[in-house]
Amino acid sequence: MKICKVFHSRATPEQINSLTRSVAEFLQEWIEDSDLIYDFRLVLSEACTNVMLHAYGPEAKGELEIHIQIDPWKRIRMEVRDNGPPFDGPDETVCSDPQDEFGRGLFIISRLVDSFGYQHDQGQNTLSMERRIEESAWKV
């Protein structure tokens, strides 16, 4: 039995923070490990910020969706969706030079999930990420 939930927001810094906190609260109903919750929130923060900065532009306040799919005692899948134009996609996950102020979002995502992918279909971008969760991290 999989549990699915969809969160909606606008791509602004304030609403992204509120959105990722809401997702973290939802995940806390299932996951015991607070470090893991932090990782998920960080991954979503990076993905949503990328949507704001690159899909829409910082002033556009475009629509954002987060789809959470929980496969209890096995894995969690997250999808971040937006209606911005297509882009080249996450084909590089190289860590930035230390002096670079930007460009670490995708690298952080790649380090905290087991797999991720991007697609553009019918006017929608989807960044999907999945992480296996060991049994001990779940709430009984």
Partner: peptide
């Protein structure tokens, strides 16, 4: 309690 890549960029900015 929470640091994302934007926060990291801020710290790097000051360091630079």
């Amino acid at each position: 309690v929470f640091l994302d890549s934007s926060g990291i960029g801020f710290l790097v900015h000051i360091n630079n």
